[in-house]
Design a protein around this nucleic acid. Structure first.
Lengths: 197, 197
DNA sequence: GCAACATTAGAACGAACGTTCCAACCAGTA
DNA sequence: TACTGGTTGGAACGTTCGTTCTAATGTTGC
């Protein structure tokens, strides 16, 4: 019937990537082992190695890319929520707080843990993390420029905005309390506002 | 001769804790295994289990406390570097950038990776992380209050200050570039300054 | 010297790790 | 029906994990 690619198998590959992304952001690279990933995806270990001949490392890189895109969409939604960059950036923090709270403090940034854990030891993962962070920074910088901020200033501030989001998420996840992210939202707006003057 | 406690054995215990702290912040909880820790400490595995009957978990908790105190000293040095809270907080970021750069991006926050990795799964570690973060936040808040900021405002802002430090360190470590921390220093000063008005 | 003690080296444990392999399973095509 | 090629289940590989155990090793007080 379908002549897309195959009957329904490529669906398995997607499930594996999603399950890997979920486990990676909860337990990190070393903590998320292959068997539980396959189990969570409703697949078998052989399927994992069939679709990812590069093994766990290749899967982790693709899972990180997948998670990074998901996070990009959340960021995009927050950034487009208001023409005012200060309000938009604050909305990102609040959106993140919602996502995090509703998922019992599990669905956060898919890059932080895995990247920190493997810095300088798994180049492919580090590279994927760098690209994700740069992409997010670019998104925020673009928003800031639409409000008249000069490009270099915007890039630097965007970096700190990402840093605040990452740091506040860390605090919120560890303490199991969304106060840090909510406070960060206020301070983000304040910082951006004072930079636009 | 010495009647302190014992001849030189408790020195071994300290070395184990230090080695564990170092490996934990580089590779996280799952990534830092017991044998390499003992090896790095110049001790044997039996010594680890002799001093820490609770095993890896007990060792990790104490190592995190040790690392957290070290980080507290860096923070204290930065905070006392200027009577102006804005400048003092910025100095913390620059100090962190120095430490990180000089150690080839390894000696950073001893809490972030391990805590994120074990959120909701190793209560003892999470608790130690919460205490460390709260302590640092308290230090920053105290500094802000000396500049006349009301206590609740200071506490909230101090939380975001810690978040920025953590987030910027994440970016710097992953990218291997101290630009995020240097930019964060500028924005930290700016944020605190605008909050003091 | 000897007994009592804390400390250590090294082997050993079962469990879990990432990975590989092969036999069975399906589609779709002839 | 047979054949083909992508997909899967399950067993098996060697390695490493955290942990335990037993001797041997100091070191301290008598």
């Amino acid at each position: 019937m379908r002549a897309e690619r195959s009957p329904a198998e490529s669906d398995t590959r997607d499930r594996i990537v999603q399950a890997a992304a979920a486990l990676l952001q909860r337990q990190g690279y070393e903590g998320a082992s292959v068997k539980p990933i396959a189990q969570a995806a409703g697949a078998s270990v052989s399927s994992v190695y069939h679709f990812f001949p590069g093994g766990k490392q290749e899967l982790a890189i693709e899972a990180m890319r997948y998670g990074a895109e998901e996070f990009s969409r959340v960021l995009a939604r927050g950034l487009s929520s208001s023409p005012d960059a200060a309000k938009a950036v604050a909305a990102c923090a609040l959106l993140q707080a919602d996502t995090l709270r509703e998922s019992d403090w599990t669905d956060g940034c898919p890059v932080a843990v895995t990247a920190l854990e493997t810095v300088g030891r798994v180049p492919g993962i580090q590279q994927a993390a760098i690209e994700a962070l740069a992409h997010w920074q670019g998104m925020v910088a673009a928003k800031l420029e639409t409000c008249g901020m000069p490009s270099p200033t915007a890039r630097a501030l965007a970096g700190t905005v990402i840093a605040i989001l990452e740091g506040a998420e860390l605090l919120s996840r560890v303490t199991g309390d969304d106060t840090p992210l909510n406070d960060a939202a206020v301070h983000l707006a304040q910082l951006v506002q004072s930079s636009l003057n």
